[in-house]
Deep mutational scan, measured.
Amino acid sequence: MDETGKELVLALYDYQEKSPREVTMKKGDILTLLNSTNKDWWKVEVKITVNGKTYERQGAVPAAYVKKL
Results as ranks from 00 to 15, higher is better:
M1A: 13
M1Q: 13
M1E: 12
D2K: 12
D2W: 14
D2Y: 12
E3W: 12
E3M: 13
T4E: 12
T4Q: 13
T4G: 13
G5P: 14
G5F: 11
G5W: 09
G5S: 11
G5T: 13
K6E: 09
K6M: 11
K6F: 11
K6D: 08
E7N: 10
E7P: 10
E7L: 10
L8N: 05
L8R: 11
V9M: 03
V9H: 01
V9R: 01
V9Y: 05
L10E: 10
L10M: 14
L10A: 03
L10T: 06
A11L: 03
A11C: 13
L12A: 02
L12C: 12
Y13R: 15
D14L: 04
D14S: 08
D14A: 06
D14I: 03
Y15F: 06
Y15N: 01
Q16K: 11
Q16G: 06
Q16S: 10
Q16Y: 14
E17G: 15
E17H: 08
E17N: 07
E17C: 13
E17K: 13
K18D: 06
K18Q: 14
K18R: 13
K18L: 08
K18H: 07
K18Y: 03
S19P: 04
S19G: 11
S19R: 06
S19C: 10
S19A: 07
P20V: 08
R21Q: 14
R21G: 15
R21V: 11
V23S: 01
V23L: 11
V23I: 13
T24P: 06
T24R: 05
T24Y: 03
T24M: 03
M25T: 02
M25S: 01
M25Y: 02
K26A: 09
K26V: 07
K27S: 06
K27F: 04
G28R: 03
G28V: 03
G28D: 04
G28P: 02
D29Y: 03
D29H: 03
I30L: 07
I30Q: 03
L31C: 06
L31D: 00
L31N: 00
L31Y: 09
T32R: 13
T32H: 09
T32L: 14
T32E: 06
T32V: 15
L34D: 01
L34W: 03
L34Q: 01
L34S: 01
N35T: 06
N35S: 12
N35L: 06
S36F: 06
S36A: 12
S36M: 10
T37D: 15
T37K: 10
T37C: 14
T37H: 10
N38W: 05
N38A: 08
N38P: 04
K39V: 10
K39M: 10
K39S: 11
D40V: 12
D40E: 11
D40S: 10
D40L: 12
W41F: 07
W41I: 03
W41K: 00
W42E: 00
W42N: 00
W42L: 05
W42C: 05
W42F: 06
K43T: 15
K43P: 01
K43G: 08
K43Q: 15
V44N: 00
V44W: 01
E45C: 14
E45V: 12
E45G: 11
E45H: 07
V46H: 08
V46N: 03
V46A: 09
K47N: 08
I48F: 11
T49E: 11
T49G: 03
T49A: 07
T49Y: 11
V50N: 07
V50M: 10
V50A: 08
N51C: 11
N51W: 05
N51R: 08
N51M: 09
G52D: 07
G52W: 03
G52H: 06
G52K: 05
G52Q: 05
G52S: 05
K53L: 13
K53Y: 11
K53W: 10
T54S: 11
T54H: 08
T54K: 07
Y55G: 05
Y55W: 10
E56S: 15
E56P: 13
E56W: 15
E56Y: 15
R57S: 05
R57A: 06
R57H: 07
R57T: 06
R57L: 08
R57F: 08
R57D: 03
Q58T: 10
G59D: 00
G59A: 04
G59L: 08
A60E: 15
A60D: 15
A60G: 06
A60S: 14
V61L: 01
V61G: 02
V61D: 02
V61I: 08
P62I: 05
P62T: 04
P62E: 05
A63N: 02
A63F: 02
A63R: 07
A63T: 05
A63D: 03
A63Y: 03
A64S: 14
A64P: 06
A64H: 12
A64F: 08
Y65K: 05
Y65R: 04
V66C: 14
V66R: 00
V66S: 00
K67D: 06
K67S: 09
K67H: 09
K68T: 06
K68L: 14
L69S: 02
